[in-house]
């Protein structure tokens, strides 16, 4: 089993690639890897309930750890109690922790 850190910085309304990135996260998880999806910048926007949130909610319910940068949430006025079930606010230090721990890291 390999630890993956997948960092999503894009808004799904801005980039169609976001859906593909989430499919990759799902695939890695289903293959038996431990996957963390870290949302940052506009990547946190679908962490709220919305028309583009279903794929993210499904990931969070199927073994992928989904974290949202607390600073990015705060910048956008999104409080932690508005996040999808299974999505947790986390500091950016988490990314450095995982990098230091040797996670395979992928930025999108």
């Amino acid at each position: 089993m390999t630890d993956y850190l997948m960092i999503e910085s894009r808004d799904p309304f801005d980039s169609g690639d976001v859906a593909n990135f989430l499919v990759l996260a799902e695939g890695l998880s289903k293959a038996g890897n431990r996957v963390t999806l870290f949302l940052v910048q506009n990547g946190v926007l679908p962490a709220r309930h919305g028309v583009r949130s279903a794929q993210l909610a499904a990931l969070a319910g199927n073994g992928v750890e989904v974290l949202a940068d607390s600073f990015s949430l705060q910048e956008r006025g999104i409080s932690a109690n508005r996040l999808l079930p299974g999505v947790k606010a986390a500091p950016l230090e988490t990314v450095v922790d995982r990098l230091a721990g040797g996670c395979k890291a992928l930025w999108h």
Partner: peptide, 14 residues
């Protein structure tokens, strides 16, 4: 781009 800010935040933490 905000990527610059995030990158510098990461480097600052390290």
């Amino acid at each position: 781009n905000a990527r610059t800010t995030t990158a510098m935040r990461l480097i600052d933490i390290a």
